[in-house]
Amino acid sequence: MTTLVPVTYKGGIYRHDEVMDLIDDLGGYVVQKHVMAQDVVLQSFVPRDDIDLIRKVARPLGGEVIEAPLVGTEIAVVSPSLEIHHLPHSACDVAEYLRRAGAKTNMIGLARGFGKRIANLNDEERDIINEHDLAVYILGNFEECIEKKFPALRRGIHVPIVLTGAPDRETLERIIDPPVEGYVGGAGRIMHRFKRPEELAKLDELVEEVSRTLDARRDDLARDPLSIFPPRLMAILEEQIYEITLLTHPTPATAQMEGLRVKLPYDLYADDLRALEIADGIALGDIADILPSRMRNYILIRIKPFSETGILV
């Protein structure tokens, strides 16, 4: 079986459809396509052995293929509020940098996440964060505050968390109990853009920390694979459900590590999705849970593992 690896293709819009066709022909998947003026960025999964072939085809078009560890993941960037104190720096800088590594990031500004004693997380915020593959918490400058408020902000969160703050990594590890999956120290509340080499190094460290955490989850998934690879399901849905192509969202269907978020109204489409035949005699409802998302009225598809369904599509 060929291994699909996450890559980003960057190139001009001219003849980029040839690259898309090539990825398709090689058995890969394009999970996100961004067209910005003359440029196009494709976040995709391609067979490891064929990366050189794609490079060769892309060379005359001026395109480049970069390994992007976070393609196919949806990450929540959680900041204590959406006030000027946290935006645009550092929360947006972090979200933007993770996007460059291929992730689909959603920024979540908590309603009452600020303060040491008064910090809170409501049920809607909790559920939305739990719909992601991983949450990055962007906290501030004081050890005392992070120690006191973090238990409130993580209550009920069961996805992996990567925590950033101004105290160094060792301090963060010491004050957080029980431990979270990743830490990046030395990156607290700042009022300027991350642009110095040492600041950019922090962002690289964050990407590394996030991909390390997600790799651990990928290893678990390799031991008990999902009934269908999410980008594959995404391709099937886009082909079978015409309405998805009509949506104006940048990512009408968002690939996650263990499922998909489909931006169609749950009430109208959930039953159709459950009944949708994705392979011979197999309905989507047999291999996945079709759930209402807390994000607007979207649909969340959680794919069940092979051990549960005994089906591998």
């Binding site: 400058n141 050890e143 101004a166 105290p167 607290g188 509340r189 700042i190 009022m191 300027h192």
Partner: peptide, 17 residues
């Protein structure tokens, strides 16, 4: 500030603001 890390961060924040 009693916390050195926070103090340095605030120096930079104040200058930036």
């Amino acid at each position: 500030s009693p916390e050195e890390v926070g103090r340095r961060a605030y120096e930079r924040i104040a200058a930036d603001v």
